[in-house]
Amino acid sequence: MTTSAPESTAQVVSSEEIRDMLLNLVASYLEQPVTDIRSDVKLLDYGLDSIFALTLCGDVEDEYGIEVKSTLAWDYPTIDAITGFLHEALSERV
């Protein structure tokens, strides 16, 4: 779990790093090995519903020091989709 967030240090973050971070995050929520989590499965299918999406948004903000809409995980329902969005947002920041 990420507890201390790097404060808006704009740097290039690769898609792989973002995806790994999200996989680990979701695995920690579910208390499952990260190898059991797939990035193309909807988070909803893991039982992570609308309220959970709010948690994820806060964790992503703290991890990358950017503000994202609280509905991030509603609009990007899989780890792959969130990765794509975040990679673009972080690249724009750089």
Binding site: M1, L25, Y29, L30, E31, G47, L48, D49, F52
Partner: peptide
């Protein structure tokens, strides 16, 4: 809250 496992931040 800091010590709570991440699972406790979900619907579970």
């Amino acid at each position: 809250w800091r010590g709570l496992s991440p699972r406790n931040r979900t619907p579970f």
